[in-house]
Simulated assay, not measured.
Amino acid sequence: MKKILIATHGEFAEGIMSSAEIILGKQENLFFINAHVDHIPVDKKIETFLAENVSEDDNLIIITDVFGGSVNQTAIRYLSSGKVNIITGFNLPLLLELIMLNESDITPEKLKEITEKSKEQIIYVNDELLKVNDEDDEFEL
């Protein structure tokens, strides 16, 4: 079964999970870990999550906020634990794509494609509006 764990510094994980569930509804296989918000080390939180929620047959996708950050470094330790994929530096469009992804499509190629597509959603709006204004004189800010 596909399972997605969002693990971030602070309460970002919980917040973005809430946003995803507002859009797509409650997700049975979506989990979060808020790291560094209490006295429990992130490695203990991940170990507990794995023990309680993940079996050998599951496809686990872990998404973290910062490559090289403590949460990502900790998650990397679990790459050898069965079918684990880690994506870091994510946004809401990426999370939504992963949630809607069929389990049979969980391949390195598909995950790379989704990651690349999500980068296109990071847009400097000022420039986009200037392009629209140049193309269509009727649209104004």
Score class of each variant (00 low, 15 high):
residue 42 V to A: 09
residue 134 D to Y: 05
residue 61 I to P: 00
residue 57 D to Q: 13
residue 27 Q to E: 12
residue 57 D to G: 14
residue 91 N to D: 10
residue 120 E to P: 02
residue 107 T to P: 01
residue 72 N to M: 05
residue 8 T to W: 02
residue 53 N to R: 07
residue 108 P to A: 12
residue 112 K to W: 07
residue 113 E to H: 13
residue 64 T to V: 06
residue 5 L to S: 14
residue 77 R to H: 06
residue 97 E to V: 08
residue 107 T to R: 03
residue 79 L to V: 10
residue 95 L to M: 06
residue 99 I to R: 00
residue 60 L to A: 01
residue 107 T to M: 03
residue 33 I to W: 01
residue 37 V to A: 13
residue 36 H to D: 09
residue 82 G to K: 11
residue 6 I to K: 09
residue 43 D to I: 10
residue 139 F to P: 01
residue 82 G to T: 13
residue 65 D to A: 06
residue 73 Q to N: 02
residue 62 I to R: 01
residue 137 D to Y: 03
residue 77 R to V: 02
residue 17 M to T: 05
residue 17 M to D: 02
residue 81 S to G: 08
residue 95 L to W: 03
residue 69 G to P: 00
residue 68 G to R: 09
residue 15 G to M: 03
residue 44 K to W: 02
residue 105 D to R: 13
residue 113 E to V: 11
residue 44 K to C: 09
residue 140 E to I: 13
residue 98 L to C: 12
residue 110 K to H: 10
residue 11 E to Q: 15
residue 125 V to R: 08
residue 120 E to F: 07
residue 88 T to R: 07
residue 36 H to R: 09
residue 132 V to S: 08
residue 90 F to K: 08
residue 1 M to S: 15
residue 31 F to A: 01
residue 111 L to A: 13
residue 127 D to V: 07
residue 61 I to K: 00
residue 76 I to N: 14
residue 120 E to L: 10
residue 20 A to C: 07
residue 97 E to Y: 06
residue 106 I to T: 14
residue 90 F to R: 08
residue 39 H to L: 12
residue 89 G to V: 05
residue 26 K to D: 14
residue 8 T to Y: 02
residue 35 A to Y: 05
residue 17 M to K: 12
residue 126 N to H: 10
residue 25 G to V: 05
residue 7 A to T: 05
residue 105 D to C: 14
residue 59 N to C: 07
residue 137 D to N: 04
residue 68 G to H: 05
residue 65 D to S: 03
residue 41 P to V: 09
residue 112 K to D: 14
residue 73 Q to L: 00
residue 125 V to G: 07
residue 47 E to L: 14
residue 56 E to S: 15
